[in-house]
Each structure stands twice: as C-alpha cells, then as structure tokens.
Simulated assay, not measured.
Amino acid sequence: MKWFLTACCCLGWLAAMAQPGIAEMQQAKQDLTASFFSAFDCSLVIATLVGLNGALKIYHNAQMGKDRVDSDVAAWFFAAIFITLAGAFLRALFGI
C-alpha cells in the first residue's frame, strides 16, 4: 500500500508538470493578437472595396432612373454598420 501511494503521488506530480504554464498562455495570447489584427485589417480593406463597389452601383442605378434605389441604400448602409460592429464584437469576444 505504501508503494502504491508513493507511485500515485509521483505520477500526479508528473501530470501536474505537463500542464502549460503562464509563459505558454501569454505566448498563445500574443500569437492570437498578432494574427487577429492582421486579419482584422484585411477584413476592413475588403469591406472598403466592397463598400465602394456598392456605392458605385447605387450611384449608377440612381443616375439611370431605376426604381428601388432606396432599398439598395438601406442594405448598403446596414452592411457597413454590421462590418463595423462585427470587428468590435470580435475584439470584445477575444479580449483583445
């Protein structure tokens, strides 16, 4: 019984040493922060290009006298708000 208890304590100690420490957690957070901001910047550039394309489409439709331009404007406006709020939401979600 004495040997069994000693072996369990030694194995428990080895299992505790195998857990990641504070340094590893800080490194993982730093890696997430670096990749998140580059992806966030990329998404803002893509959103800008898509937004400009939508604005040109709406302008062209308005100049050509097409109907329902107001629904296109609303869709374009709310998509821009969604992109902006999605970035803030993801920052809050990941704690960055």
Rank of each mutant, 00 (worst) to 15 (best):
W3Y: 08
F4D: 10
F4K: 06
F4H: 08
L5H: 10
C9L: 13
C10H: 00
L11I: 08
W13R: 04
L14H: 02
A15P: 11
A15H: 10
A18P: 02
G21Q: 01
M25A: 14
Q27R: 11
K29W: 14
Q30R: 11
L32G: 04
L32M: 12
A34H: 10
F36Y: 14
A39R: 15
A39F: 15
F40W: 10
F40R: 03
C42R: 10
C42E: 13
L49D: 06
A55W: 10
A55R: 04
L56K: 01
K57Y: 13
Y59G: 13
Y59L: 11
Y59S: 08
H60T: 11
A62S: 05
Q63R: 12
M64Y: 12
G65H: 05
G65S: 11
R68A: 12
R68Q: 09
V69F: 02
V69M: 02
V69N: 07
D70K: 06
S71G: 06
S71Q: 05
D72L: 13
V73D: 01
A74R: 09
A75F: 12
W76I: 04
F78G: 00
A80L: 04
A80I: 07
I81L: 14
I81T: 03
F82C: 02
F82T: 02
T84E: 09
A88D: 07
A88N: 08
A88G: 12
R91D: 05
R91V: 06
R91P: 00
A92Y: 15
F94Q: 03
